[in-house]
Computed example of a mutant assay.
Amino acid sequence: MNKLLSMLQLQQQLNDATNGIGWERGTTKEGKRINWRRCIYMESAEMIDSFGWKHWKSIAQPTDYANLQIEIVDVWHFVMSLVLEDGIYRENETHEQMVTWMAETKGYEMLCTQSAPAFASDEALMLKIETIMRRSLEPAINGDLEKMVDDFFRLSVMGALNLDELYRLYVGKNILNQFRQDHGYKEGSYIKIWNGLEDNAVMKSAWETNPNMSPSELYSVLKESYPS
């Protein structure tokens, strides 16, 4: 429960810094409309590109499972943002109340009890991703958000992530997103490819090299690795 609360609070802080205080009302500090559901289905579509699903092209392309896990974490940012928007703006919920109902889902129970889950089949993974896409495209109805969160937790388990690994990768990507914002991401001057590697891969490699790093230490490693 504490890790879930920590991730939700980190997402709140990131959204406040990136979009401005009051973003839960649906617009950024620059007045640009926010649509978290669109973010979810567009990122989910990118997730499917981790698979060699095109029957007419790159037939022997292997599944990029490392990228799949990064994309799962990217979608998690937007799912939590939708939870925060709905909870704060519409339901007047505290972070603790949001975490309480999320932790009551069957998917969360699976995420906590799986010590070392294995990857599900590619077809099963793609079907679950497409389920989340459908939920994000449907009009918001009672219970819709709970089902989406439950499906997300189930997808995480199918993608060989337990709660500890989801937390570790999320914190890493959260710090990377902060680093991006601090180095010109919004202005378009940020460099995403570092010495032939995408910044996501650099971040993941840094965590794997030293999984006991603090978030501030990870930020320092990214700063040292960033091409000037």
Rank of each mutant, 00 (worst) to 15 (best):
R154N: 13
L111Q: 01
I129Y: 04
M203W: 01
L155H: 02
K147Q: 15
D122W: 02
G143T: 09
Y190W: 09
Y167Q: 14
L176D: 09
Y185C: 03
R135I: 08
C112Q: 12
G184Q: 08
G196W: 05
D151N: 15
A118E: 10
R168L: 15
A120R: 02
M110C: 03
G143I: 07
L155Y: 00
R168F: 09
G172S: 12
Q178V: 15
H183M: 06
S121G: 03
E198N: 11
E165D: 13
M148H: 04
G143Q: 07
W207Q: 10
Y108C: 01
F153C: 10
D150Y: 03
G107T: 00
S156L: 11
R135H: 15
T131P: 00
D151W: 07
G188M: 11
K204P: 00
Y190L: 03
V171T: 14
K128W: 02
K204N: 09
T113V: 07
D144E: 14
G188K: 06
A118V: 06
N142L: 12
P139F: 06
G184M: 10
L166C: 09
T113Y: 01
E138H: 11
Y170E: 08
V149Y: 05
Q181Y: 08
G143S: 05
D182I: 03
E123W: 06
G172R: 05
V149S: 10
Y108K: 01
L176V: 06
K192R: 14
L145Q: 04
E138F: 10
A160Y: 12
G159E: 09
N174V: 03
S189T: 15
S189G: 10
R135Q: 15
G188Y: 07
L163H: 13
Q114F: 03
E146K: 14
F179Y: 11
G172K: 10
R180M: 10
A206M: 11
L176C: 04
D151R: 11
Y108A: 00
E208I: 07
I191P: 01
F153A: 01
N162V: 08
G107M: 05
G188W: 09
G188C: 05
M126H: 01
M110W: 09
N210R: 10
F153H: 09
T113S: 09
R180I: 09
Q181W: 05
G184S: 05
A160P: 09
A201T: 14
